[in-house]
């Protein structure tokens, strides 16, 4: 259960970026989690609720997009999506791949931020 640690990293990262952009509040956090990122989204959501307390992300919505595993299969010469979510084996020929193209992401994609126009900290 390392999702609380990851949620704390996510909140620090998001808060720093939001404050730098002059935000007074963050309403939504969009992340991408790969199937092989080693992170359970439900546990991350719980950790997020705890980690956002008393920050400008408090009560923000966490939107998680799951990214399936995509590997490059050399024998087949193409990118393929394994049948099982945690497998790296080609569904066509069964060969395990050592070239994982997608599915390991743990990325902060975007934030929906609220700015106070009466007190612009960073005029754009």
């Amino acid at each position: 259960m390392h999702e609380l640690s990851i949620a704390l990293s996510l909140v620090h990262l998001a808060q720093d970026a939001a404050l730098q952009a002059g935000a007074v509040q963050v309403k939504r956090v969009q992340i991408e989690v790969g199937a092989m990122a080693g992170v359970v989204p439900e546990a991350l959501e719980l950790g997020f609720t705890i980690a956002t307390r008393e920050t400008i992300l408090e009560s923000a919505e966490l939107r998680v997009t799951l990214v399936p595993v995509v590997v490059f299969c050399s024998p087949c010469g193409q990118e393929v999506e394994p049948t099982n979510s945690l497998s790296i084996c080609c569904p066509l020929c069964g060969t395990p791949s050592d070239d994982i193209r997608r599915g390991q992401e743990l990325d902060l994609v975007s934030l929906e931020i609220v700015e106070d126009p009466l007190n612009p900290e960073q005029p754009l």
């Binding site: 996510l10 952009a21 743990l106 990325d107 994609v109 934030l111 931020i113």
Partner: peptide
């Protein structure tokens, strides 16, 4: 005002 802040960084 509300706006979208694009980031794309690793957590």
């Amino acid at each position: 005002t509300t706006r979208l802040l694009e980031l794309r960084s690793q957590v």
